[in-house]
Design a protein around this nucleic acid. Structure first.
Lengths: 180, 180
DNA sequence: CACGATACGGAGACACTCTCCACTTAGCAA
DNA sequence: TTGCTAAGTGGAGAGTGTCTCCGTATCGTG
């Protein structure tokens, strides 16, 4: 890639990061282009779709996921404590921006999503937790179901502008349902 | 209301019912107006917002909710069977059209929603189930949490175009987490 | 430093939402 | 029946956001 192109790409991603966080995932792309100081055409060449832009914005996020799962596993405790801690982390991780929980949870169901690789990381993280739980986990449950159960709750809380405190009790319900 | 106005209103609601079901809740309102054989202005006078149109479309739906809860309660069985049956009904009820689960679940959190009255019905239905469960229910759980837990799952399944069979196992997790 | 490949940007086509208002019509009163 | 007026209509067009096209500018290599 030409040096000026790379420069512009970075400026766009940075502008998008700010816009997605402050104005939500619906922020007009033309505005993002303007904020980045480039034309709309430039934005669309680098990122043909809104999702592909989001994908770039979340590049750094993957590392945070891996950090989080590592920490949660390291802290030890009962299966219940572990799972609850992980789900709390999980909700926080997917709530990177308004609309994030729904976006990410749905992307996990869609093999054609541009966020596919990001979702793989998240799924792998869930799988690590599942492995640690061993026989304490209800039989037949997989990492996708983890994502759906917790993602569903997080989406409702996010989109309904509910206080963060309302999540805890619901996670406990799911946790108790998931353990034998 | 003048006779011709009532006629047009009905035509619009009918066209919207079809459009919401087949094309989802995002169907262009201008198209709905066209399908109903009226101008856009007419549609917007009768229904100032998309939500108010949805509200009208779902008028008949309220009766179905009350029917369903009555039937579920009448069938008897253990608390677990009762709750599972109700949740299955609940998911079906809120899946009236594409985007329905998310729409309805979020409307329950919003006192200013035009669908407020519809949601009251749904909440009352949940409350009836809760009453029936009595001491078998985990302490501190209310009808809104019911709505969020099940609504969250239904939203994911609906928006992710997942097979209906994927819902059952997740409902079981929630049911087991909700009962003592 | 010249030239081809690469990238830029913004005008404008397109899609959807919603308003405005000149025109039409239902329904009543005489 | 006829005439009147409040109620209702419809579609043009303004506003907003998406996305493409292509003439112009810039990069970086030979």
């Amino acid at each position: 890639m030409r040096a000026d192109a790379a420069r512009n790409r970075d400026k766009i991603v940075e502008a998008a990061r700010v816009a997605f966080r402050t104005r939500g995932y619906d922020a007009p792309l033309d505005d993002i282009a303007k904020a980045a100081g480039v034309g709309a055409g430039t934005l669309y060449r680098h990122f043909p779709t809104r999702d592909s832009l989001l994908d770039a914005v979340m590049q750094a996020w993957v590392e945070r996921v891996n950090d989080a799962v590592g920490k949660v596993l390291a802290e030890g405790g009962t299966s219940r404590e572990l799972l609850l801690r992980w789900f709390e982390q999980y909700v926080e991780l997917i709530s990177v921006h308004k609309g994030g929980p729904a976006k990410i949870t749905l992307a996990m169901e869609d093999d054609a999503s541009p966020m596919r690789t990001k979702c793989q990381t998240l799924r792998a993280a869930n799988a690590q937790i599942i492995e640690q739980l061993g026989d304490d986990l209800r039989p037949g449950v997989d990492s996708l179901q983890f994502a759906r159960l917790v993602g569903g709750i997080a989406s409702v809380v996010d989109q309904g502008n509910l206080p963060a405190t309302s999540i805890g009790p619901m996670l406990e319900v799911v946790v108790d349902g998931l353990l034998v």
